[in-house]
């Protein structure tokens, strides 16, 4: 099984066997979106996210 470490929270994130570059995954622990940026070796980066205003 392919796995990567979440760059946000260090969780182990499982990847599908047919994962492709550009695919967006969600970390099951912290919920951040991860973009697959490489396959050999598999690498992910934080995907750009629209910030919500929780400050009100």
């Amino acid at each position: 099984m392919l796995t990567v470490e979440c760059p946000e929270c260090a969780a182990t994130v499982e990847l599908p066997a047919d994962v492709e570059v550009g695919e967006i995954l969600v970390c099951p622990d912290c919920g951040v979106e991860l973009e697959v940026v490489g396959l050999e070796p598999v690498a992910v980066d934080l995907a750009p996210e629209v910030e919500e205003d929780w400050g009100e």
């Binding site: 946000e8 929270c9 969600v26 970390c27 912290c30 919920g31 951040v32 979106e33 996210e49």
Partner: peptide, 11 residues
């Protein structure tokens, strides 16, 4: 449970 979420209603 660890709850420090970047998405969802209760983060």
């Amino acid at each position: 449970r660890l709850v420090r979420a970047r998405r969802g209603i209760h983060r």
